[in-house]
Design a binder for these strands. Structure first.
Lengths: 224, 224, 224, 224
DNA sequence: CATGAATGAGAATTCATTCAT
DNA sequence: GATGAATGAATTCTCATTCAT
């Protein structure tokens, strides 16, 4: 697992004395969630076997059931846990920003990319889209907790930009769509066709590429 | 099945003598592909049962196996058949266009949306993304036959626009990414969260919304 | 099919005017039985598909059912038809023999071998042994029509040899067993391990080998 | 299961702590192999259902798959396990023999009969012959591990007999064929027609009958 | 008579889940 | 808490058999 796990500081942890077995015990759920995230992202929900998750977490078949009702609940827990970290950090960063709307947009998308787009969380986002119709309530949760807040943040920045005359008067919803589309496309891409050998170049879908798209959008393609 | 099936005019059909039973034979594969497309799009590959496809096509369990080796081959056939129609029509339309690059882009994306984005084909596109890592060769086929050509078309239009001074000199690849992102996002959206009751408004992801995004991209957000 | 089919002169044939279509029609069942014999011998009962038999007989899937109730009946018919020819010819030859018991035994076993042991009928014999417990009545038929008569014939020859002082007084049943064992073993062998590439030499199981075994049995191994 | 199972002392067993559940684990594979041997011998490979094997072993459908990849591997395991015991005991007995070639032959065939011919192993031998063409590699294994060694043993005894003047100079291969044919025929017989009610008397195919055949072969039928 | 599309019972195999240890 | 043997519902795929043409 490349980038820091979002689970080890989750609600499952505790700050008690951290000695050997006790610590082990408290980390179990986090380790299982972590392994589950990896496997769900890699193979999808149906194709991921509980036993594989258990083995990847270093436990045996029955253990995940001590912490999670069933496979579906485990999946939901993965999504929830992941988003807790994600949304929290998004909010903290947004709150601390200042400067022009343009600067804010660049900063926010940069953070978003670095925090999520380029990590396993992007895979989770793609997975949620793939499984949304199979898990309606989970999708509703994801929508409410991740998508709507993100969009609200973007919306207020665009409105701020228009208010201060930085952006011309425009269709705010459309602008937000246009601003979010490249990062969403990139996240999905990197976990679908982009993962295939030799298929990289439908756009690079890396950070530089994303920033280039954003610049184009801000300035327009049309010659003045 | 709401919008016109791409299968009924496929290689499987024939317009010959149309007498009851015999007629069935020629239509069967198309009917099965059609039912399969619906169900795969709705539930994904793993969650779709062969027997459900059969029932949806009005036949029994064994019948799909008369025409398709197994579930995976049926899935591949769905993708291939669908794309034949799609890519062909894309090319025909592109060939017939004239006018400014801007007009071309609008026309092409409009066609794309009406042809694919708003139909079950969008669901297939989303499905391919969801299943890409599970079906590498199929993903390669899809990439080669659908994605790469589409992108090539967009690229030449942008280059044309730059050449004739309509667009300012720019990073063509990034521009193409930015142009394609909204329609891709919309297609995925409409078959994931967008399909949930009461979740419409993360952007409308309809035709008007798409055109609005395109306009913004062409003109920029930034005030002059 | 190498050696002459036993079916074309079967009860299914008729001696009527033999012109084109009419003839075709009358040969159908024989052609199906012939194909079935080949395939049953090659693959066994369960692994042989009705459609393969039909195809091998140059007809389509439904046709065998016009002549045979079902797969089991077809199998039984194969066995019965085959044995009609076999037992008949055995009897004719036995009736015509004269000379010493030893000469009779050699002649009879030679005929047996040439008529059955070295042809597809040996495969059928092996198949009957393999399937005996699955088809009790058929096995009973085979036993009654093929095995018992063959054995009776051998028994009377041995008794004849003892009576005329050619053989010493002995356990006739054991002698018959010992005389029949090599040819039975050879028939089974040639359609099991003997059919494997590079496995020939557990005894050659050909005509010369069979005669050598017979000679040994008649003369004994022991030095005088 | 009448005669002692070859499995209960196999590598799968262990004599360790014997407490309920845990004990089961070690016995399971042996119980399944045992049940499988019975059923395969009785019905043949194709006609034997995995679920029946499971039930016969006192477990449910899925359990055999915990120990054997699939039906074919289970079949192979049955053959291999059975032969381990068989070939080992054959070798031990052969090594311990002394005396004349005639005595050796009688002793060896007696052992062979008692060890294999009259037990379920004879059924396995018949099964291997029935399925040889369906499982070429398994047949090759059986040939190499069972048939070839047995034949080699017989061959060296006959050669020994000729060398010491006990047997007259003869075609050794033919002699071995003739010596082995009765026991092979008996093994096959007892698991095909011989298993049918009221069909016993094509030779008794029991121990006494076998020894009688052997005596005849050694002494010859012909009057001196 | 012959065809071959369609049927549907049946068998192999998988895997989420349970529970005695 | 943890284990992992066992379960059995679920699913894919096969193929003997039927019957409208």
């Amino acid at each position: 697992m490349a980038l820091g796990s979002p689970f080890n500081e989750s609600e499952f942890s505790n700050a008690m004395i951290d000695t050997g077995w006790q610590r082990k015990k408290d980390e179990r759920p986090g380790e299982i969630l972590d392994a589950a995230l990896d496997l769900f992202v890699e193979k999808g929900f149906r194709a991921t076997k509980m036993e594989d998750i258990a083995r990847a977490a270093g436990v045996t078949k029955g253990t995940p059931y001590l912490y999670f009702e069933n496979k579906e609940e485990l999946f939901k827990a993965v999504v929830r846990e992941t988003q807790v970290a994600h949304v929290t950090s998004m909010r903290e960063r947004a709150a601390g920003h200042s400067g022009s709307a343009t600067e804010l947009l660049f900063a926010l998308l940069e953070d978003w990319w670095k925090e999520s787009g380029s990590t396993r969380l992007a895979g989770l986002c793609k997975l949620m889209m793939a499984e949304a119709t199979n898990f309606p309530e989970l999708a509703a949760f994801y929508y409410a907790e991740v998508i709507a807040p993100s969009r609200a943040m973007m919306t207020s920045i665009v409105e701020f930009g228009v208010a201060r005359g930085e952006f011309r008067p425009l269709d705010v919803a459309a602008a937000v769509d246009a601003l979010m589309a490249p990062i969403i496309t990139s996240m999905v891409w990197n976990h679908s066709f982009g993962a295939m050998p030799g298929v990289a170049p439908v756009g690079r879908h890396d950070y530089a590429s994303l920033m280039a798209s954003l610049s184009l959008l801000l300035n327009g393609l049309t010659a003045r």
